[in-house]
């Protein structure tokens, strides 16, 4: 029996879970503030490099990852307060430009501190694959998938079951209504970007062992992340996860059955297609943002 296509789907799902993780953080901050965070990919890289740093000062790997995620999250929150929030009132363009500056700064900071030569961090769980029912799968892949699911379900609970989360939803839908209801958006903005930082950093620690650490390692992940978020429908965390998987599976199948040369273009093609045909995303509700002029 030919397991080629099913295997491609399986491998895609495993890879897509990490895209989803980046995508969720991206979409939470986008939804709350309308700002597209161009530096998302650099947060991923920062997470990986800080994990490397944690290990080098003697922390055990899981602790190093948590510390890295907290530093990146807190740092992104602080950057939001200092360099993005003063700009919201002028329109989102200015805040987006500011994240471009952040992206340039983070990339060169990494290069200054850790150098341009690729570094290596170890895996949390073994990456060697085994065969089940004819499929090849590794513990690391399963672990990434489960961790992504847990974190994203955590996000869903946070957004839907807590006061803070519901506040975020309200701010996203209608900022004026939110302030009428007595919700102070400023804490929520901080939190949205901090969460995006945490998720991106964890994604960095997960992908780092596979990819090797380079100052530019985050760029493709940043793009994959927000493509995932748009495909899934901005605002729905589970949608972003599904979007990441759709993207990775589509890419794998395209490499197998179409041409590998334009694999990267496929992500953009999907992005534009979804935006034009179904702006609320494959899994999103036809909502406020998409219909705005």
């Amino acid at each position: 029996m030919d397991l080629l296509a099913p295997q491609a789907v399986l491998s895609g799902i495993a890879a897509g879970s990490v895209y989803g993780l980046v995508g969720v953080g991206f979409s939470v901050s986008f939804r709350t503030t309308g700002v597209i965070n161009i530096a998302t990919g650099d947060l991923v890289a920062m997470g990986a490099y800080l994990t490397f740093w944690g290990l080098s000062v003697g922390l055990p790997l899981p602790v190093a990852i948590v510390v890295a995620a907290l530093i990146v999250g807190l740092g992104m929150g602080i950057v939001e307060r200092l360099a993005l929030r003063p700009l919201y009132r002028f329109g989102t363009v200015y805040a987006i430009m500011s994240t471009i500056g952040l992206s340039v700064a983070l990339q060169s900071l990494i290069q200054l501190v850790w150098g341009p030569v690729a570094l290596v961090i170890p895996r949390l769980v073994p990456g060697e694959a085994f065969t089940i029912l004819g499929f090849r799968l590794s513990l690391a892949q399963i672990f990434n998938l489960v961790l992504a699911l847990v974190l994203i379900l955590g996000m869903v609970l946070l957004l839907e079951r807590t006061k803070i989360g519901r506040g975020m939803q309200t701010v996203a839908r209608d900022r004026e209504l939110a302030s009428l209801l007595g919700i102070r958006p400023s804490q929520l903005f901080f939190l949205a970007f901090a969460l995006a930082g945490v998720l991106a950093a964890v994604a960095g620690a997960l992908i780092g062992p596979d990819q090797g650490l380079t100052p530019t390692m985050g760029l493709p992940l940043g793009i994959a992340g927000f493509t995932a978020a748009v495909i899934g429908g901005l605002g729905s965390p589970l949608g972003a996860l599904a979007g990441g998987m759709v993207l990775a599976v589509a890419q794998n199948l395209a490499v197998l059955y179409l041409t590998p040369d334009y694999k990267a273009a496929l992500a953009y093609g999907l992005l534009v297609l979804v935006l034009l045909v179904r702006p609320q995303g494959l899994f999103g509700e036809a909502g406020a943002l998409a219909r705005r002029v």
Binding site: G12, A15, P220, A248, Q251, D261
Partner: peptide
Amino acid sequence: NLSYTVGATDFSGEAQKMKS
């Protein structure tokens, strides 16, 4: 004979192509 973008995150599709 296939090409990929430098810094790509996932090669499972390409690897399978080699296998097939």
